[in-house]
Each structure stands twice: as structure tokens, then as C-alpha cells.
Design a protein around this nucleic acid. Structure first.
Lengths: 277, 277
DNA sequence: ATCAAGACGGATCAGTTATTCCATTTTCTC
DNA sequence: GAGAAAATGGAATAACTGATCCGTCTTGAT
């Protein structure tokens, strides 16, 4: 409406323009602006309705956004996003070399990043193939029936349970993260009853605390769901149900991607199951 | 009509298929085939009517062409041309299960797991394309030169910094995880000097503590490296260098896979860089 | 030359599209 | 805190979308 003088014809100009006006934009329009800049492909290919839905706004707002920037409608705005894809047809080679271990002309930093990305990708693939239907089902059963879910993990596995604790909290599912900040883990765990349940996560070299806690709970008939790396894991023995998650690693640090996805799937599945009670 | 067994999902396969059948195609269909291979962008973005006009055929012929190749309509054919231009090229297996809502014979649990795995996969793809060489390099520079690295994140981003703290510890790099268990975060952060550095991670809706801490550090000339979701993030303003990590999400919970891989890459890269001092 | 089988063109249709409009809510100003 | 202005949500709409259908035409075997 105001800026008829210079309406951006290419994506970079549009991007700059949006970033300039960032502060002056109304809430919903800013929401779209953010979405558009982080999901340009969606804008290019989607319809106004589909984009609006995934961005969490009304279709009419999308059009208002386009008009606010000086375009005469969503279609004109969209054409800028499409133009961008037509021209940016160069990075195809980079893509291939990036995915393969092709380290020609790549910086050391980039090689490291690619290493972690590849490890993550593998770990997701592996989980996808290794998780069995009935194991998943019985794990969800156990956890959905539990009064309190105890979360056991240390060191490299701790981030997983930390995220689970967050998600369980959001989903209003009672849980107890064993963190040992005050050194009273055994006392907290002594409250666990057979009507509760625990999730234990540990990979070789296994954290002794996790192993011991899981064993102690199992001895008192508290059902344990474990995520570990092999059938020989001491965790597998304490567990009523266990998942094999052989994570890829890079330079000594495991990717957590597959385990994380599995853990979150368990979390949400438990919530879904409880909702159906 | 004939080839139901293997209809091409990616552009290269389609191209090969068309070239194979070149001779056997009726006149108008061959005309479209030639046009499609030399103007793939037009097919990707145009409508059946507009393409038909520029290719000099009837719209119905276009649809017949698609069906002749085994697609069930022009739209399915077009999606192959669009996929070709997409930035994040996901394997078509995932597309099927994720976008189609292909829940045939899959249990609810499995659908949820697939959802998280797909989100993780997307997030890795996205990171892989979005991280720029020079941004990565200067982030590593900043962090490698720091005396102490402060780690700022809350809620869903906290698992990332938890893992970084673990990894930095193993690599003997001095770091301070801001956890607020004792509520003395401001005091701890007040120790930070311009010769230190911080990593701040937050996604919309941003955790206010992270935003404030990052801003406070920036105001005192402590360099901040941020990982966030868009240029609109308040974190981006406090940061000297920032990465865009638009994580996919499933049922309200973000995948952390891409961010995790980036975080670990930063961690290891910093260690590598220090070793060369 | 005949005639069937396939290819083609164009009218038609149901579904979807981008857009407009207006009542309601939110935000800003005094 | 009252009033004005801007922003927003949501229903309504007209245009257009991909797809279907069927009569006409082309092709090639006999």
C-alpha cells in the first residue's frame, strides 16, 4: 500500500525488505514473515490454504501479508519464491558431494558437521528398521499403566531423559527424572512401586548408576523399559521390555537422533493411550 | 496403463523412462515429452492449462500423457518435477508415510514413531543445506578463543546444551551450563568476560530466560553464538553469529536431531581448532 | 479401400483456488 | 480508561483448477 516504488522482484530483495520491517509488522504478519523465510519451499509450492494451515494463520492473513508488502496478491508474492527455485539450480553438485564422504575442497568444520549429520541419518534409519511392533506395543502398555514414570539415564544418555521429562510434563504425565543433583537418588527410587514404571537408557560403556538403579527397581517388581545397544547389555536383563538402538557415532560422540525419536514416540504414544482410557 | 509396477518417483528415473519410450509414443504425447524434458521448470510451476498452451497441445492430452506413464493424473506427474526443485529432498518412502498419511495397516504407535523419525530426517536435511561455511567458521573461531564457554538453553532446547556440556567436559574444554537449579544464574553469568563466549539456543516460543541472559551477555561484550529458528528471533539480535535451524516437529514436539548434530559439530570443531594452537 | 483401434480435441463438471468483505477483537492514543 | 484505529478471524464468492467424457479424426493392417 505504501511502498509502490520498489517492490522486490527477487528473493534476496524480498528477504531484506522483510527483515527491515520486522519490527513494524503486526503479530500475525510477523508470524507469516518468519515462516516464509524459514520455509521458502512451502511458499513456492503450496496453496494459500495449505500454507496458512501449516503456518497457523488464516488464508486471508496471508493475502494481507502479500498486499502489505506491496504485492497485489498472494500469487505475485508466490512468484518471487518460485523464481528463486528456478535460478538456484546450481547447488546440485554440492548436495551429492556433501552426502557422500567426499571431502574434496570442504573445510574441516564442514567435514565434521557432515560426519555428525551422516551419523544422525544412519541412526534414524537403523531405528526405523529395528523397532518391532509388539515390543513397541507392550512398552507403551506398561508405561501407560504406570502411576509415576521414573526416568533413568546418565552422561550421554541424559539429554534423552531430560527431553522426555519436559515432554511428559507438558502432557501432564507424572514423571520423575533421576538427576542426582542432591545425591538422594536411592531414596527417591525407593518410593517406586510395582504400579509405577521406569525407563532406563544406557549404552556401552554403561553408566553404573543406571544399571544399578534399573536392577534395584526390577528386583522390587517395578517394570523397566530399557533402551540400550545390545542383548548383552546388563540393562536388557533388568528390563521387561527393551529396544535395541545401535547409534552411529562420530569422533567418539554418539548421535542421539534415533534414540531421541524413539523416546519421543514412546512419550507421545503413552499420552495417546492414556487419552483413550 | 501398462507400467504400474515401477512408476518413477524422482526426476532422473522419469527422464530415463521417457527417453526409453520415446519412439513408441504417439505424436502429441511425444511432443509433450520433448517439451517436459526441455522445460522442466514450466511443468513444475505451471498449471495444466498454461503448460498445454505453451506446449501447443490440449490440457486433456497433458493428463493423458501423465496417465500413459503410469501416474494417476497430472498432479502426481507434476509433483515429481516439483520435488526436483525442492531444497530438502527427502526419500520418497518418507514422503509416502508422512505426507500421505499412509496409515494402512500401521499401528497408531508405529505412525507416531514414523512421524518423529520423519521429522528428524527433515531436520537433518535442512541443517545440511542451511549452514553456511563462513558462519560455521566464525562461530568456531569465537568459541575456540574463549576461556570459558557458557551454555544457555531452557526447556526443549536444554537437552542440547546438556549434551554439549558432557562433550565439552570429555574434551577438557572449560564450560558452564546454566541450569538454574539453585536460582543463581545471574550471578554465575556476571562472571563472564569479553574473553569468554556463550552458546544460546532457543526456538519459538522463546524461553525468556535464555533471551534475557543472551542480551545481558551481549551488552557486556561477551560474544554470543546462537542457534535459533529465524532471523526474527530475539536471539539473533544478541548474537554475533547465529545459525538458522528450522526443526521439523511432530504433534507439537520438535525434533532436535539437526540442532543436536550442529551442536556436536561445533563442540568437536572447537576442540580440533584448539588442538592446533 | 475398408475398418477397427487408438489418438485427439473440446465441451463439461465437481472440487478447489485466491480473494473480498464484514463483524469482532486487539492495540494504540489521548 | 474511553475512544479511535488497526488487525484479525471466518464466512461468502467468483474464477479457475485438474479431470472426465464422448464424438471426431488419424493411423495402419488387411
Amino acid at each position: 500500500m505504501d511502498n509502490e516504488v520498489s517492490l522486490p522482484r527477487d528473493f534476496d530483495a524480498l528477504r531484506t525488505m522483510i527483515l527491515d520491517r520486522r519490527e513494524m509488522l503486526p503479530k500475525r504478519l510477523a508470524q507469516i514473515a518468519a515462516y516464509a523465510l524459514s520455509n521458502p519451499d512451502e511458499i513456492a509450492f503450496g496453496t494459500a490454504a495449505s500454507i496458512a494451515q501449516t503456518a497457523g494463520v488464516q488464508p486471508s492473513t496471508l493475502i494481507r501479508f502479500a498486499q502489505h508488502l506491496g504485492f497485489d496478491g498472494f500469487t505475485s508474492l508466490q512468484s518471487v519464491f518460485r523464481e528463486r527455485l528456478r535460478e538456484r539450480q546450481v547447488s546440485y553438485e554440492e548436495r551429492l558431494s556433501a552426502l557422500r564422504g567426499d571431502t574434496h575442497g570442504l573445510s574441516k568444520n564442514r567435514v565434521i558437521l557432515n560426519g555428525f549429520l551422516t551419523a544422525a541419518s544412519h541412526s534414524i534409519e537403523t531405528i526405523s528398521h529395528n523397532v518391532e511392533e509388539d515390543v513397541l506395543a507392550s512398552a507403551v502398555d506398561i508405561l501407560a499403566g504406570a502411576e509415576t514414570i521414573y526416568l533413568l539415564a546418565r552422561r550421554r544418555s541424559y539429554p534423552i531423559t531430560a527431553y522426555m521429562a519436559y515432554a511428559f510434563g507438558k502432557l501432564k504425565i507424572r514423571n520423575q527424572l533421576i538427576e542426582s543433583t542432591a545425591g538422594i537418588d536411592p531414596e527417591i527410587l525407593s518410593f517406586a512401586k510395582p504400579t509405577d514404571a521406569a525407563i532406563a537408557i544406557s549404552f556401552s560403556p554403561y553408566a553404573s548408576a543406571t544399571i544399578e538403579h534399573a536392577a534395584a527397581l526390577a528386583a522390587r517388581n517395578v517394570p523397566v523399559v530399557a533402551i540400550t545397544d545390545s542383548a548383552f547389555s546388563p540393562l536388557a536383563q533388568s528390563a521387561k521390555v527393551w529396544f535395541e538402538a545401535a547409534e552411529g557415532d562420530f569422533s567418539g560422540f554418539r548421535s542421539l537422533s534415533g534414540t531421541m525419536a524413539l523416546a519421543m514416540a514412546l512419550t507421545v504414544s503413552v499420552a495417546e493411550k492414556r487419552r483413550s482410557f
